[in-house]
């Protein structure tokens, strides 16, 4: 079958229009979850369909696409999504953050600073920060409406009482624009502060949960915390990337079971490759 039998960017124009409408609404109400009709795609729900539908809806022939999976440009999921989008749009692919215009990401914000020309599309498994406390979707929405966020703080309080510190490693709840508490998809705590007052647009898509939300450029994003337990980043001191020698970035830990050694390397593979190449010159 000819690939050209598909519409540009796979989805039909009506679907794209509906998703774009949801995106526009999400941008106008930062951090608020906007429902949308999640479409069937050639990949299963829960494999990044939320992010993919956003990408397919906003992409144009002149865009340059980068897809990362936990920081990697070359993991199976990242490559499959990249190939799929290029096949049905013909857009150029890249691993270079600066060159890309749309970056679809699963759970990382690239190390390189994103600018006004970037849109970062995040895949979200669970968009509801209150889900673990309130199972009813209706009641959770009422709680958002009433700014009743004591439950979100309670989650952190319980961790402090039980373990003496906030143990949430990824998906740290944040207050967006002083109004909505948002689950920033499971990005590591390290990336949370990157959302605040950014130059780029962040779009979040949850395909299984059928929600889209956004953090527009230059929006205040503040992690929830307590007076005596302020928000803390992961400690990355005294760690050096074994490939490019970078410091103060987010690392993957690699354990060698034969020698028992622990190595660190940049989680962001595009950044790492660029950095290593620059050093060789």
């Amino acid at each position: 079958m000819n690939e050209n039998d598909y519409n540009f960017a796979f989805l039909d124009e009506g679907s794209k229009r509906e998703i774009r409408r949801a995106i526009i609404k999400a941008i106008t109400i930062p951090g608020c979850q906007i429902p949308f009709g999640s479409r069937e795609l050639p990949i299963g729900r829960g494999w990044g369909t939320g992010g993919l539908q956003i990408t397919l809806s906003i992409i144009g022939p002149d865009d340059i696409l980068k897809v990362i999976d936990q920081g990697n440009d070359d993991s199976v999921n990242a490559i499959s999504i990249k190939k799929f989008v290029s096949r049905c749009t013909g857009v150029e692919q890249t691993t270079d953050t600066q060159k890309a215009t749309i970056i679809q990401s699963r759970h990382r914000i690239p190390e390189e600073k994103l600018g006004e020309n970037h849109v970062l599309v995040l895949q979200v498994p669970n968009p509801e920060p209150l889900r673990s406390v309130e199972r009813s979707v209706l009641k959770a929405r009422q709680m958002h409406g009433d700014t009743e966020y004591s439950a979100a703080w309670l989650l952190l309080y319980e961790q402090i009482v039980r373990y003496g510190k906030i143990t949430m490693g990824a998906g740290y709840p944040v207050l967006v624009d002083g109004r909505y508490v948002m689950a920033p998809s499971p990005i590591p705590r390290y990336d949370t502060l990157g959302l605040d007052d950014a130059d780029c647009l962040y779009l979040f898509g949850a395909g299984r949960e059928k929600m889209i939300y956004a953090v527009p450029p230059h929006t205040s994003v503040v992690p929830l915390d307590f007076d005596d337990f302020p928000f803390e980043l992961e400690n990355v001191e005294e760690r050096v990337c074994r490939i490019c020698g970078a410091e103060n970035v987010y690392f993957d830990e690699i354990f060698d079971s034969e020698t028992g050694e622990r190595h660190y390397q940049c989680s962001d593979s595009g950044f790492c490759a660029k950095n290593a190449a620059a050093k060789q010159i």
Partner: peptide
């Protein structure tokens, strides 16, 4: 009550809702 959260946490939720943000004082 939230049956799966600690009893202390349950009481603290009311304090959090009223604007308290100091863990030691709430405990």
């Amino acid at each position: 009550l939230l049956m799966n959260y600690s009893s202390g946490g349950n009481v603290a939720q009311k304090l959090i809702a009223a604007g308290h943000r100091n863990v030691a004082a709430m405990q």
